[in-house]
Design a protein around this nucleic acid. Sequence first.
DNA 1: AGATTATATTCCCATTACGGAATATGATGC
DNA 2: GCATCATATTCCGTAATGGGAATATAATCT
Lengths: 107, 107
Amino acid sequence: MPRAASSSDVFNAVAEPRRRDILVYLALRERPVGDVVAWLGVAQPSVSKHLKVLRHVGLVHVRREGRQMFYRTNVEAIRPLHEWTKTFEHFWRHQLARVKERAEGNP
Amino acid sequence: MPRAASSSDVFNAVAEPRRRDILVYLALRERPVGDVVAWLGVAQPSVSKHLKVLRHVGLVHVRREGRQMFYRTNVEAIRPLHEWTKTFEHFWRHQLARVKERAEGNP
DNA sequence: AGATTATATTCCCATTACGGAATATGATGC
DNA sequence: GCATCATATTCCGTAATGGGAATATAATCT
């Protein structure tokens, strides 16, 4: 079985560094594709493809205005990722505490 | 340019659902490979390969004991992921607040 | 040393990925 | 209608994927 498609879920979608950059950029406010292209410094077709993936998994919203497409990060869609990582927060607190204890010579 | 290797960074490594399962399973305590195989219900070579990827990006630690290899999730390595998602926490609070305001008819 | 157990590696395959270049669609303006 | 601007899609090539099967390594036991 080959690797899952980037467009299959949020985890695969954010595996791409550029897509993470785009999400950060579009979190502040909606922007037309051209702005993303200028800011990222990559070819327009490439940006359009990344945006397509992000749209597929619901990580961005789109709105058309004339010939421009305004994209905006759907921050809610990032929550599942955040929740998943949060399940470990608990553990690393404990792990840190243990390391600290040992460093201080407390049993 | 082809897709980045799963072993290139933490984001790519956790894009695989089974690897996420493994990380959760090994967060509680260290376990030999055989336990992971039994628990996941997938072939042993497959598990070994996933563990190799996780090891490469530092998401698990290994310890040999006789012929067994005990793996444990390195929860610290998940923090970068957590931190990245946290940059959006702020935004979805605002977004939720706005949605709520509108629902309640408050300007 | 030979057999057995635990894990890792290799090989093959179908599938997907991303980037680049070219082309297509879609909206606006003359 | 035609040209132009903004964005999307298609085609190509290289590279990596994860599963399965077979094989290799490494440690233990008799």
